[in-house]
Nucleic acid binder design. Structure first.
Lengths: 151, 151
DNA sequence: TTAATTGCAAACGGTTTGCATGGGC
DNA sequence: GCCCATGCAAACCGTTTGCAATTAA
């Protein structure tokens, strides 16, 4: 029995960009940025001028559901997506968001300490509140270098 | 010279609920929940039937700007607000969000360790990326006790 | 031939804005 | 009188839904 349709695509470097799913997957794979649905739509249009924004949304929804993509909200009113196992990104990382220009920087400092603390916290919380924790997010907010200089 | 209009209200237990600002401030003070703009609007209506939703939004915006309230996004499409120094809440805490019923639990376990790690991380990040960090958020997502039992 | 996928247009829902009215100093 | 605060209705904008047409199995 074969796995789901996307299974072999994940490890297939030479996939063709034909249908919307493979198209969006390809775009996500080739960026280290945090693209919004519309960002992806615009990029997709260049390779398939007949694709619809709705399909991009539905595709991203699917990707998020099956776990190959993650959806983030950095507080600027639009969701952003990144591939769960993007070869261009650090495996486990968090985000720093500039409150002015909304640029996003990935970081992965002190991940060992963080994971340790998170594990401890998760254990305590699931015991205390009987809460089954699936994942956590950490966001730092502040002012980036170029925004501070421009001031 | 006196401070801004809200300064003495903050320490005034017996403020009157007349104008929208004092009304909203009062509601935020008396809850330990994470109310949305509409939640607050509905509550405000009970004390002042002529208040408008727009005013609630503008008031919350003001509160967030001057720092007496914090705005949160837990991923359900509507912003939620809590008073920065709510006497009913733990001073420094984070949130656990149920992915099913969207209920939110505050927690403040391992805050000493967390603050230590955050301080360390902030220092490293501001050095490495010249990023001036203002604040951070940590959210845990999972399934709460009653949602798991209902399954 | 039957189910799944797609694109379009319209709907949706939380939030914001324009604007005219009202209230305080 | 002047300025800020307020409420209403309409606009906004990212996202979702209904539906008919197309494609894949």
């Amino acid at each position: 029995m074969r796995g789901p349709w996307w299974q072999d695509r994940l490890n297939d470097a030479g996939f063709r960009l034909t249908n919307p799913r493979e198209l969006v997957l390809g775009i996500l794979r080739e960026t280290d940025k945090h693209l919004s649905a519309e960002d992806l739509y615009v990029k997709a249009l260049q390779k398939n001028p007949s694709i619809g924004l709705t399909t991009v949304y539905r595709t991203l929804d699917l990707f998020t559901q099956i776990g190959i993509a993650q959806k983030f909200d950095f507080g600027d009113g639009k969701a952003r997506y990144e591939l769960a196992n993007n070869p261009l990104k650090k495996a486990h990382h968090h985000h720093m968001v500039c409150l002015k220009c909304k640029s996003i920087i990935d970081y992965s400092d002190f991940m060992k300490e963080e994971l340790e603390l998170m594990k401890k916290t998760e254990k305590a919380l699931s015991k205390k509140h009987k809460f089954k924790i699936m994942y956590h997010i950490i966001h730092f907010y502040g002012i980036c270098n170029s925004c501070r200089e421009g001031d």
